[in-house]
């Protein structure tokens, strides 16, 4: 029983408009439970623009400022500045953006906020494409995945942008990956982010059943497979330098992850082998950064 989870206030309501099995509301609920009610949430264009409901409603019990697609970082900085000048520094500012609003169109303003080290918590819930507009590729779309703008005859080529490295390169005080499959780890990281002064960044893998072409019930399982197959390692970086891996992968071949999702249906054996090679390479690099051959984390 997750006693603390039960005690923490429910700041997301039922009745929101997320699709069945969406990772987005799971991530939001966990994050808000970790942050508490004294939080202001800035949401640029993303699925959550819709999920939270139309005027005159909201699915959150914290204030939301909806903002333009590319402005999450700047808008969060603005809220922070206004709070500080009013002596309301206790209030936390959460920028909540999708992968498009983070990796692509919002990268500049995120970089600006991170470079200024404004005291905000930036959470990117990453579903690896522009899902709200109907599954178009983003720079967070993985290598060779199908999207509506990278049809299976011509899937995306090239790696997913490594947003964590980009953020770590800013010497951001706290950068972490997290996943809806590991709620306690996610909440711990969001709490840690909130306790850390300056810009903090949490990159949350958040499956999209229609966009990934998976059953709605499979969301968490697929997210877990992403980590267990090392596609999406769970780790954190302090001050851009100190790396720590938090969940020990179960060493599952990437094929198992890929074959569970319709968006990878078209992959040939050579594609899978190539993806596996790249994953192994990236994992070795990450392990080197973590400078450890053991793990601090554990299986769930």
């Amino acid at each position: 029983m997750m006693t603390r989870f039960r005690e923490e206030e429910e700041l997301m309501t039922s009745g929101h408009l997320a699709c069945q099995g969406c990772g987005g509301p799971i991530a939001m609920r966990l994050a808000l439970k970790a942050l508490g009610e004294d939080t202001i949430c800035v949401i640029p264009a993303c699925c959550w623009t819709i999920i939270s409901g139309p005027f005159p409603y909201s699915a959150l019990k914290v204030p939301i400022m909806h903002t333009a697609f590319e402005t999450a970082g700047a808008a969060a900085s603005g809220v922070r500045a206004a709070l500080d000048i009013q002596g309301r520094s206790h209030t936390k500012v959460l920028a909540w953006a999708g992968d498009g609003g983070t990796f692509d169109i919002g990268l500049q303003s995120l970089s600006g906020a991170a470079e200024r080290n404004d005291d905000i918590i930036y959470i990117c819930y990453d579903n690896e494409a522009y899902m709200n507009t109907g599954v178009q590729r983003s720079s967070a779309t993985p290598d060779r995945a199908w999207t509506t703008t990278t049809p299976s005859g011509h899937p995306k080529r090239g790696p997913k942008k490594n947003i964590v490295e980009i953020m770590a390169a800013h010497k951001t005080p706290y950068v972490a990956t997290a996943s809806v499959a590991y709620p306690e780890d996610l909440m711990r990281k969001v709490r840690r982010a909130a306790e850390t002064r300056g810009t903090t960044f949490v990159h949350v893998l958040s499956p999209c059943p229609p966009g990934w072409r998976i059953d709605s019930e499979a969301s968490i399982r697929i997210a877990r497979l992403a980590t267990d197959s090392k596609v999406f390692p769970i780790y954190e970086v302090e001050n851009g330098e100190k790396y720590q891996i938090n969940v020990k992968p179960r060493d599952i071949p990437v094929a198992e992850y890929l074959k569970a999702q319709g968006r990878f249906n078209h992959l040939a054996a050579e594609d899978i082998a190539e993806i596996q090679r790249k994953i192994d390479h990236e994992w070795r690099r990450l392990m080197q950064k973590a400078m450890m051959d053991s793990y601090s984390g554990s299986h769930y």
């Binding site: 202001i40 402005t71 808008a75 603005g78 809220v79 500045a81 206004a82 000048i85 600006g112």
Partner: peptide
């Protein structure tokens, strides 16, 4: 002048941040 001055990385962000600040109840 007792103000927070955000040295943003673009005019777009300048406008985004004062929109946000104004929404938070201050003169911008």
């Amino acid at each position: 002048l007792a103000a927070k001055f955000l040295k943003v990385e673009s005019e777009h962000s300048a406008m985004a941040s004062i929109i946000a600040a104004s929404s938070t109840g201050v003169r911008t």
